[in-house]
Design a protein around this nucleic acid. Structure first.
Lengths: 356, 356
DNA sequence: CGGCCGATCTAAAGCGTATTAGACTCGTAT
DNA sequence: ATACGAGTCTAATACGCTTTAGATCGGCCG
């Protein structure tokens, strides 16, 4: 059976052009490959080949092209979640946007690897879905869950991988593009300090995540730089249900004039703090200031924009692509570029004001 | 030079597996191809091959697969815009979400073909970037701009294509999954009629688009069915700046009790009508009713949900994948399935009430 | 006049996989 | 003992393109 799927019309090949132009297939390849001058093809021959190609409506078979060139111009994108984070509310989406954008600019296409490894795909190998990624020239990864061993395996094989988000589980082996949460968080605290706030309460979630640790480090650094030690402990990990109006009142009575929370996947604690402040009858920024280390993925309708910072997700996506392409080029990439952090823009918002 | 790009370790091939398992490459292909029982391979051999494949982390090269078998379980997605519509506000995104979802469920991965044809990729053919799509088994297309000729070319070559959105430029040759704007629009009008409204003003944008024509047809059909001919002309194409508070007052004075607008990319006219009604000091639905043929991609913060209908974008994306896979199977697909329209769900909203 | 050279072009060997005709074992029946 | 068939596996080729070593040819120099 010549054609696997139906009776598709065979497309013109270089061999057909060659026959028509009275040259060899190799010559056709050289001419159409754009290097007739490099190898040395007579101008007249070039013209004949082009005419024949136009006449037949030749278009190179991309599969054959990629096979022969050993490069697919395909960048993979994979998160380790069961299903691809396609929800708009999902904070992953802007990464995808940036990746797509830059990949397009650089002449690469994107393959979205869905989370589940389909059994229906024969010959795809059964060694775990992760190896499917190898279909692409390289793969950009992101997601909370980081299967250390699987990634290590890819790295062992010199398969090009770039993580979005700071990831030091594998030392300096895993290239990444992260966000500079430390500096951004420090800046937020310094802004508050600059507004006269001295007793600042930082509330974070209990969940341990690298991004949260970085924010906390930034907060502590900011407090130290501002010479603020007014509130002890400076960091308060807590669950959303512990954040009540009563708790807010207690804090304020103790002298707290500014609250700082963190943005996470769900930002439950941040939302809880906002609600609790309102429930306590306090207004931002008149009565207390409220800042957030990050920002809501979707701004809650009708609420003022919270002071905080914006993670440059789109830019990170773009940077990841650039890094990946550099890695693909094979040239050595300096360490500072293999693992980099991007600055987050301060968001003034409307919930922060001078201490009152 | 063996490796085109640096000194990366070559990905494992079937030949490597064969060596490791002590069999021939052909055997590996048969085993991994999923037909060891058809041809007859000993269970023990099958096991050895699988073990070797797992150990090496084998994944078939998509280009080679495509070349040899003309199928690689890759679905293309392409819009004809210069850059892929990755903006969250872009109404295209839900399509992508649905496509991704269903493709994953069916064992296909997605290739996003970016709009721009990179010059950096020589020999990709000079007949337009669209032929790049052929790397995928088939391609799902959408977008406003429809390059008729390029699509015709793909169809001529029997390349499987599915359009998202009704497209009749190519008669019944181009399979599509559209939305039934006619019925949905008719229903909205009938609802208004059912609420007692007799003078209904339909305002549409001046831009001519198939989707707009369908909506208009639905409106006219609904008006006819309800026996309403109170307002002439029934359809009013206009620019956003023409929609002013004065205009609204004039309309209302003329007896209009309900306004109908259309959702578009930007929905400028729809927004303008909403603002003009408010500027005229009228409230919905107390003073006048307001309905929209479609819905805002992002609900404007703080505003009530407008009565209208929801285009099932995600479902359309899924349906497009299913249709595509059926087409790929090669079996004849009945016309009603090749070109289908999906129902839009009515959105009650809060801007419509009984005539007062 | 032989040899060398530059200018053109081609033959052939991949790239990694699928597919098919047949080769090679064993048993078993003749 | 021979033949035969079922059960396994492999050799060989095709897919359409790139790449490189070398073939061919006319001209020119010594």
């Amino acid at each position: 059976m010549r054609r696997a799927t139906g009776a598709r019309r065979p497309r013109p090949r270089q061999a057909d052009i060659a026959k028509l132009a009275g040259v060899s297939q190799a010559t056709v390849s050289l001419v159409l490959g754009g290097k007739p001058d490099v190898v040395g093809i007579a101008a007249d021959t070039v013209r004949r080949v082009h005419e024949a190609a136009d006449e037949l409506g030749y278009v190179a078979d991309p599969a054959a092209l990629r096979l022969a060139r050993r490069q697919n111009y395909l960048l993979g994108v994979h998160t380790f979640s069961a299903t691809f984070p396609v929800d708009i509310e999902n904070s992953y989406y802007p990464f995808l946007a940036g990746i797509e954008e830059q990949a397009g600019a650089r002449g690469y296409d994107i393959v979205l690897f869905t989370g589940s490894a389909p059994e229906s795909r024969p010959a795809a190998g059964r060694a775990g879905a992760i190896h499917r990624l190898r279909l692409a020239d390289g793969c950009i990864l992101f997601g909370r869950r980081v299967p250390r061993d699987e990634i290590a395996r890819l790295l062992d094989d010199d398969y090009p991988v770039v993580y979005i988000g700071r990831r030091n589980e594998l030392g300096d082996r895993l290239p990444y593009v992260g966000a500079d949460y430390v500096t951004a968080s420090r800046d937020v605290v310094l802004r508050l300090a600059g507004l006269g706030h001295e007793k600042i309460r930082y509330v974070r979630e209990e969940d341990v995540a690298l991004a949260s640790e970085d924010r906390q480090a930034g907060v502590l650094q900011g407090l130290a730089e501002a010479g603020l030690t007014g509130v002890a402990p400076p960091v308060l990990p807590c669950a959303a249900e512990d954040v009540t109006a009563d708790w807010v009142r207690t804090e304020v009575d103790a002298g707290v004039t500014a609250f700082v929370t963190e943005a996470t996947d769900t930002s439950v604690v941040a939302r809880a703090v906002g609600r609790a402040i309102a429930a306590a009858g306090l207004r931002c920024p008149q009565d207390v200031s409220l800042a957030m280390l990050g920002e809501y993925v979707v701004q809650p309708a009708g609420e003022p924009v919270t002071t905080g910072f914006a993670v440059p997700r789109r830019e990170m996506g773009r940077a990841a692509v650039d890094l990946m392409i550099d890695l693909l080029a094979g040239a050595p990439v300096p360490a500072r570029r293999r693992q980099s952090l991007m600055a987050c823009a301060f968001v003034a918002g409307e919930t922060t004001g001078p201490r009152t």
